[in-house]
């Protein structure tokens, strides 16, 4: 079997202020094993909703999502989600945060600390094992959150704009690190972002979504060897192409916000 995830005719409606809003409209796509897939789209297009549905935190209103042929009914450890917001448990230090998933699954203390230390090293945070989240910068917290998800060894890593709140430099470093980890650990990654450059830099394929209700506008395979150079001609070509596809949609979503003002956060 080639596909780890199959998204079949998935739609999602939300009720807000007694009005039904169609956030995601009849989405169908597959994610291959070991693939790095990005989803880009204008804000409010439902891309986060898609990720939350794959994670099992939201149920599709219609359609179904299959993982390795089995229907997803709820959240589970095989689909790890890295949120956009900082989500470390503030009363746990870095080591215990990274080991959290393993602890839940009953891995003995010694073993889970060993694994956690390995991932803390991987994200370049050795020496911070005993630090608490409030002592860390946003970028460090996000790195720990990524380590926490990876240490739990999920088959699919879902990432919801994980670098959105970070400055450009930290972002570039983390993108680089993420690719290294992805190549080494052979994970499947579904990555939501509003940055086209980020999507082109990271992904095997980029799904471009329309403005709300979110549909698939195009799927673009990025045929560039890694590590990719952001200033290479081909890179810029890909970027332009996707930006052009997105442009109309961003305008649409902008007008939608201006005239309707009842958006759902993305």
């Amino acid at each position: 079997m080639e596909n780890i995830l199959e998204i079949r005719n998935v739609s999602k409606k939300f009720v807000s202020n007694n009005r039904e809003i169609l956030a995601v409209d009849n989405l169908t796509f597959d994610v291959k094993y070991n693939e790095f897939l990005s989803i880009v789209g204008p804000s409010g297009c439902g891309k986060s909703t898609v990720l939350r549905m794959i994670a099992g935190l939201e149920k599709p209103t219609s359609g179904e999502i299959l993982m390795e042929g089995r229907r997803i009914e709820g959240p589970g450890a095989e689909r790890g989600l890295v949120f956009q917001q900082y989500t470390l448990l503030p009363w746990r230090n870095v080591l215990d945060n990274v080991a959290f998933g393993l602890e839940i699954r009953g891995v003995p203390k010694k073993e889970r600390y060993e694994i956690a230390r390995r991932f803390i090293k991987m994200i370049g945070m050795e020496g911070f094992e005993e630090a608490y989240p409030y002592e860390l910068s946003g970028g460090m917290q996000q790195r720990v959150a990524i380590a926490r998800t990876l240490a739990n060894d999920p088959k699919v890593v879902l990432m919801d704009e994980p670098f959105a709140a970070l400055d450009v430099q930290t972002r570039a470093i983390l993108q680089h690190e993420l690719l290294k980890i992805w190549e080494k650990e052979k994970k499947t990654v579904v990555f939501v972002t509003h940055s086209v450059e980020e999507a082109v830099y990271l992904s095997d394929r980029v799904i471009v979504m329309t403005a709300r209700p979110g549909r698939i506008k195009d799927i673009i395979p990025i045929d560039l060897p890694r590590p990719r150079k952001r200033d290479s001609l081909e890179f810029i070509e890909y970027r332009k192409r996707i930006v052009n596809i997105l442009k109309d949609e961003v305008l649409k979503s902008y007008n939608m916000y201006r005239y309707a003002k009842n958006g759902i956060g993305c």
Binding site: G56, L57, G74, P75, G76, A77, G80, F83, T87, G101
Partner: peptide, 9 residues
């Protein structure tokens, strides 16, 4: 935080 824990199993 609850959702985070859920996605960790």
């Amino acid at each position: 935080l609850i959702e985070t824990a859920q996605t960790l199993g």
